[in-house]
Design a protein around this nucleic acid. Structure first.
Length: 883
DNA sequence: CGCGTCACG
DNA sequence: ACGTACGTGACGCGC
């Protein structure tokens, strides 16, 4: 028996939206309605086993119903943007399910459904209509059941004509009479005032139709009668509005609605894109290793020592992409698993890692190192580092898929190949976790599984390349890609391979001293608190401070009392232990993170630490540093700053040279906003915070005291972060009102800055994204959200990202240019570290003068702004002394 | 594995 | 009325 399911797409989407909490995925896209829609579809397919399927959507806002009654659906709250942004996704979802969908300008989904039920009824098909709208009940018939959502979305009540009779005492056709009498506030259908469901039903049981009720109004007594007479026209119109139109001119044939079920691969891809991880697992779409149920077969050849003859070198000429698989997060210590090659004629090779050590592998190694052998790669930077430790050189990479994907949407938390396949509609791929297993379960699968998987990746790279190149072109990011990010990857790799020397004896010595101080502090704290406890546990510390010692609670966290530094400083006057705890925290941090943590990261073979820069993580375009993080080595407090003494040059008598941009973010702001006052400060090389204080407080340079400068500095920071009175008030410890006044005074002076802040938010609203000077993009899906918090956050991000991002563009450009100059001039000096606005080098004595001149020169001229860029250079025998 | 805390720009 | 300053990574705790 054939069965047709008809879904009212808009109705189900909004039911799902309001029924589920406002979930959003890692990029801030809301997905709750999509999720609800998905579970509903899955349930229907499983329980109803439809042979035919259709999802109908409303098209546009104006329907034929508005012709007669302009206020139709008026007064209804506007669809929240969090919901409307999900409609394209829902359409895409329906397509991925392989379900036909239909919409027609001028008609609503229920008219389409009404028409389809008529056609299906004529053919004797069994039909289920799914909606959240009671109006649909008018369509019920012998073959047509109406399923209305109850609470949530996946639970439905089913209505046959008998069920309707039982519940309302009406036949389906009378549902429109019911609406005609009682109206429907949600669609702005008036009905007769004073007539609710009860009264309407009573009349209908008696008279049957609206027309009969109106004709025989004189039989009705009391006030109601007057209302009926007075609003007779309203009732007739309301009935008409509630009537589903069942003659929509559409050519849709029933056999076009045939449904053969979904394709697991396609569905898996969109679930991955939407980050429906639970569904992926529940439905086993992520696929266990080797299951590959949804994937097409792929051919590959395993390269052996025998294959590696002279003809193999010839065949390498046709290779266009290579995927190098290395295990683990840290490429400096990762085990290589193998790689796959994909050639232009579609041939795939799998090369087990061990093969590279065989004597026959010379040609292959040469090919990998060949500058002229063009290759498309995923994450060159990482591969280059991993291969380096195995003595293999990688060169000739002409396109990096990961970097392109990152630039196209830097807010995506990851850009794994399986996600990219889904994102760009290419053949789906299993996730690394599905093939290798996660964490302790990590295991390299058998050769066939591995070879197929890596071959799929290599082949996918070749397919992604032209797609991503097209997208970069469209987004005007060619320069950013080819002149900045792509060459930077090589620069980063060489910095990381080089690493920076750490004086481990010095570090251990520092650790021993810290240990003594910590022991003394701990003893004193236990005594003062009257008991021993784990000082590192905020929970235990909270119990001691607030329950045992009865100190006032300043602030709470989700899980209990807050004990952060801000709170402890406020508590210090109440009890002596508190300041000891603050010092303990400071020293414990130094000990665990910077002494013990750093010691663990020193590589025995080199005596150095080799950080790894993530080039594709930060949404603003900044780099980040891991294993260890060398971008957060202490400097603000003297005790911590001493850690910098252990970072030393690799060679005797060499020096550490550090060059940092002065006020780069405010200079960038002066440039983008064009604010005359702010530009003036930098053009005259003034202290920008003093200048701000002068202008805001209306005093002369001599009159600016330390406090005024401090406040001005905080405002400047606030401006860069996307100012809010609340944030500034927290920072300066003043009231929100005072902070708001500050900001107002600031904007009165720096009018160009105010204009920029307004414009950039407007831009974000129109485009959905903001850009840096070099066209780096950041999407802000929440910029039009109705939720105040989400929207405000997006607005601050819109203000901050172009500033932070342009500063990142500039230093990255400088790095690429300096690296080239150092190579061209055959210098022995080495670039070692980048700390957002600072570059650290090690230089031989005889290159010191040259580098002191060259580095700031290149940094200052990396990008021409309307204000000068200023760089300070310092040097010394270690990083501490380079101040 | 999430949370609180704290280091940096 | 709403209630956060922007961007990161590492550590220890406790479930």
């Amino acid at each position: 028996m054939d069965k047709l399911i008809l879904i009212d797409g808009n109705s189900i989407a909004s039911r799902a939206f309001y029924a589920l909490p406002l979930l959003s995925n890692s990029s801030g896209l809301h997905t709750n309605a999509v999720f609800g829609f998905t579970t509903m579809l899955l349930k229907l397919i499983e329980e109803e086993k439809p042979t035919h399927f259709l999802v109908a959507f409303d098209a546009g806002k104006v329907t034929f119903r508005h012709e007669g009654y302009k206020e139709y659906k008026g007064g209804r709250a506007k669809t929240p943007p969090e919901l409307s942004e999900q409609f394209p996704l829902i359409r895409e979802l329906v397509e991925s399910f392989g379900i036909p969908k239909f919409e027609l300008p001028g008609y609503e989904a229920d008219d389409i459904i009404g028409t389809m039920t008529r056609l299906a009824d004529e053919k004797g098909l069994s039909v289920v209509v799914v909606s959240g709208d009671k109006d649909m009940l008018q369509l019920a018939s012998e073959h047509v059941t109406i399923a209305l959502t109850r609470k949530g979305v996946s639970e439905v009540d089913r209505f046959t004509p008998e069920a309707i009779q039982e519940k309302y005492g009406l036949v389906p056709a009378q549902i429109i009479d019911l609406k005609g009498l009682m109206g429907d506030a949600s669609d702005n259908i008036p009905g007769i005032p004073g007539v609710g469901e009860k009264t309407a039903l009573k009349f209908l049981h008696e008279y049957g139709t609206v027309e009969e009720v109106l004709a025989r109004a004189d039989e009705i007594s009391g006030k109601i009668k007057e209302k009926i007479v007075e609003h007779a026209d309203d009732a007739r119109m309301s009935k008409e509005l509630a009537t589903i139109y069942r003659d929509v001119p559409m050519e849709l044939q029933l056999d076009e609605l045939k449904y053969d079920g979904y394709d697991g691969g396609t569905l898996g891809a969109i679930f991955r894109k939407l980050e429906f991880k639970s569904l992926l697992e529940k439905m086993d779409l992520s696929g266990g290793a080797g299951s590959g149920a949804d994937q097409e077969a792929i051919e590959f050849e395993t390269v052996t020592r025998a294959t590696l003859g002279s003809s193999f070198a010839d065949r390498l000429r046709d290779v266009e992409s290579i995927h190098i698989e290395a295990a683990g997060e840290n490429p400096h210590v990762s085990e290589l698993i193998g790689f796959a090659l994909h050639s232009k004629d579609g041939h795939n090779w799998f090369v087990p890692w061990e093969l590279l050590d065989s004597p026959e592998a010379g040609a292959l190694r040469d090919w990998l190192a060949d500058e002229n052998a063009a290759k498309t790669v995923y994450d060159t930077h990482r591969a280059e580092v991993a291969l380096h430790w195995k003595g293999i050189t990688l060169r000739g990479v002409t396109f990096d898929v990961l970097i392109a994907a990152y630039l196209l949407d830097p807010t995506e938390s990851t850009h794994t190949l399986d996600e990219l396949a889904g994102r760009y509609g290419l053949p789906s791929l299993q996730s690394d976790d599905a093939v290798f297993g996660k964490g302790a379960k990590f295991k390299v699968p058998d050769e066939k599984t591995l070879g197929e998987f890596l071959s799929r990746k290599a082949s996918l790279l070749a397919k992604l390349r032209p797609v991503l190149q097209g997208e970069l072109e469209k987004s005007e990011m060619n320069r950013l890609y080819y002149e900045l990010e792509f060459p930077l990857a090589g620069v980063l790799a060489s910095m990381e391979k080089m690493g920076i020397r750490v004086n481990s004896d010095g570090l251990r010595q520092l650790g021993a001293e810290l240990g003594k101080s910590i022991d003394q502090l701990v003893e004193g704290i236990y005594k003062g608190a009257g008991s021993e406890f784990n000082l590192n546990s905020p929970k235990q510390l909270g119990d001691i401070l607030f329950e045992k010692l009865g100190l006032p609670v300043i602030k709470k966290t989700k899980t209990g009392y807050s004990t952060d530094a801000e709170v402890l400083e406020k508590l210090a006057p109440y009890h002596d232990v508190v300041s000891s705890i603050l010092i303990y925290r400071q020293l414990a941090k130094l000990q665990s993170t910077y002494v013990e943590g750093l010691l663990k990261e020193i590589r025995p073979e080199t005596g150095k630490v080799h950080t790894y820069y993530q080039q594709t993580i930060a949404a603003t375009g900044r780099l980040s540093s891991q294993f260890p993080n060398l971008q957060n080595i202490p400097i603000r407090l003297e005790e911590g700053r001493k850690i910098r003494k252990v970072f030393v040059p690799d060679e005797p008598r060499w020096l550490i040279l550090a060059a940092d941009y002065s006020q780069i973010e405010l200079r960038v702001l002066a440039h983008i906003s064009g604010d005359e006052k702010m530009k003036e400060a930098f053009l005259n090389d003034m202290d920008v915070h003093t200048k701000t204080a002068m202008d805001v407080f209306g005093v002369s340079a001599q009159e600016v005291d330390a406090n005024m400068r401090r406040q001005a500095k905080a405002v400047n920071f606030g401006i860069v972060y996307g100012i809010s009175d609340y944030g500034l008030s927290q920072n300066l410890n003043i009231t929100r009102k005072e902070a708001a006044q500050f900001i107002e005074q600031y904007f009165a002076v720096f009018q160009g800055v105010r204009r920029y802040m307004d414009d950039i938010v407007k831009q974000a609203r129109t485009n959905g994204y903001v850009t840096t000077l070099l066209q780096r993009r950041r999407y802000l899906p929440d910029i039009n959200a109705s939720n105040f918090n989400l929207r405000s956050f997006a607005e601050r991000t819109a203000m901050n990202s172009p500033i932070q991002g342009t500063a990142a563009d500039i230093i990255k450009l400088a790095m690429v240019q300096i690296s080239k100059r150092m190579k061209d001039e055959k210098l022995r000096s080495r670039m070692l570290l980048q700390v957002h606005d600072e570059l650290v080098f090690e230089v031989p004595e005889d290159e010191l003068e040259l580098m002191k001149r060259l580095v700031p020169e290149v940094m200052e001229s990396a990008l021409k702004l309307d204000v000068p860029l200023k760089v300070d250079v310092n040097y010394g025998v270690n990083w501490y002394e380079a101040k």
